[in-house]
Simulated scan of single mutants.
Amino acid sequence: MVARRSVRDRLRHALRPRAGLPDAFPRSKPLKVRGRSVAWLPALLLLTGIVLLDANTSGRFRIISWLVLVPVIAAAICGVLGTLALGVLSLLAYGAIDASWPHRYQNGLPDFILVVVGSALAALACSVRLRAERQMLHMRDVAETTRRTVLRPMPPGWGGLDHAAVYLAADSEARVGGDFYDIQPGRHGTRLLLGDVQGKGLAAVEAAASLLGTFREAAYHEPVLTTVAGRLEVRMLRHNGYRVALGRDDGDRFATGVMVAFREDTPATVEVINFGHEPPLVVTADGVRSLPPGDGLPLGMGDLASAPPPVLRVPLAPGETLLMVTDGVTEARDASGTFFPLRDTLTKALARDPRTADPHRLVRWVRDGTLDHCGGRLADDTTIFAVRRRAADGRRT
């Protein structure tokens, strides 16, 4: 249980929701004391220990050649100059200590050459390490820019909604995958979209970016929600056709999703179109209920249906929170293969603390519950998205 919680806590820290995700490849942070770097201290302590031990043992037990380890340790935690400096210090120490012994006990030139070669190779290895780290940090910056393009940050109260979201990538170094979500205020109310593109990798990211770009324009301009849905279907088909034209083999890619419209003239209801996705949950201080599943097919499969997906008009009272998740939550399994019972455990959590229905508290609770259930082993990208209308005076309800 302790090990499982430790995994969960590390993932919670590494994947916490904020404007910028943490580094997938963290920058090297030198050891510091009162703001000053002491990265050289472990290697210097090792050097001192070897020198003292060699000086206080018999001539039959000489370990001065172990000084070759000093620049090796420095190469892992210091810069190139620091590694070279410790290598030179090791050579000086070798010469002084070895010369202090009678001739028959001296290690002599062969071990001195060993320390010289070891110091030179350590400096080279340090240079390679730093170059690789710079390359990985550059890749991190590119991935962060991609993430912020696909999953743009949204200001508080965007579109008249209190909202909170957590995105957990199954591949923590990828930082972004096929899950997507957005809120788009427009001329005809506020619309939101959450979805999951089939597959993984950059191809799924491209499809998600294409759908979000179309949604942001269509949701702003189009007065009818079914028209927005039609635009998304066409966008998915066009994207698949483009990929086929490039010679890619993923022309049958599709995306599940849920689109919700908050109309200003109907403050107690919402319009929902479900594209083959898990139905959203309505969370209140009194409990949890599911929205109707709808009969829509995933985006990219519209040709298989005889009619466009229906628009469901469902009640959503002020103060009720709409919770939407991707299959990273619903398909999370524990060691015995049991799926995460989201609705049942959430109902119990609300009974203990009704404040869990707040969007920010809610996404944190679902995140922690999912990681606890699966032991930190995410099998798929995971998105948790919660929204509710703001009060008429702009306060959080």
Results as ranks from 00 to 15, higher is better:
N274M: 05
F275N: 10
F275H: 10
F275R: 06
E278F: 13
P279L: 09
P280M: 01
V283S: 12
V283R: 07
T284D: 12
A285Y: 02
G287H: 12
G287W: 06
G287K: 09
V288A: 06
V288Q: 13
V288L: 12
S290I: 00
S290A: 15
L291I: 07
P292H: 06
P292R: 00
P293M: 00
G296L: 02
P298N: 04
L299W: 07
M301S: 07
G302R: 05
D303W: 01
L304D: 13
L304V: 14
A305I: 02
A305G: 14
P308T: 13
P310W: 01
P310G: 12
L312K: 06
L312V: 05
L312T: 14
R313I: 11
L316E: 03
P318M: 12
G319M: 08
G319T: 09
L322W: 04
L323V: 01
M324I: 12
V325S: 04
D327S: 11
V329F: 06
E331N: 15
R333N: 05
D334R: 11
A335F: 01
S336H: 10
G337M: 10
F339K: 03
R343W: 00
T345F: 00
L346H: 02
L350Q: 02
L350E: 03
L350P: 09
A351G: 14
A351K: 09
D353N: 13
P354G: 11
R355T: 15
R355N: 10
